[in-house]
């Protein structure tokens, strides 16, 4: 069963939401998902680009009140 881990990276200026996502992916199994919350508009661009480059899968991007929810599936070990 797919496990989803939430990382609340709102207010994460350093090293930033994408670096938190990379760190989080180290800790989950192949097939699991990470939902990352970010209030940095840049995440809408840099997370999908990195996910594609790194060979993982983008689940969803949702714009919520004053922040974004981005779901990423770990495809590679």
């Amino acid at each position: 069963m797919t496990k989803r881990t939430k990382i609340d990276a709102r207010g994460a200026h350093c090293p930033g939401p994408l670096m938190e996502l990379i760190a989080g992916l180290r800790l989950v199994e192949k097939g699991d998902e990470i939902e990352i919350l970010s209030n940095d508009k840049g995440s809408l661009k840099d997370i999908p680009i990195w996910v594609q480059k790194a060979g993982h899968a983008l689940g969803s991007i949702e714009e919520l009140q004053e922040y974004y929810s981005i779901v990423v599936e770990k495809v590679k070990t």
């Binding site: 200026h13 350093c14 090293p15 930033g16 670096m19 990379i22 840049g42 840099d46 680009i49």
Partner: peptide, 10 residues
């Protein structure tokens, strides 16, 4: 660096 720029802080 792991992401598409030189540091996590833009």
């Amino acid at each position: 660096y792991p992401i598409g720029r030189l540091h996590g802080i833009e």
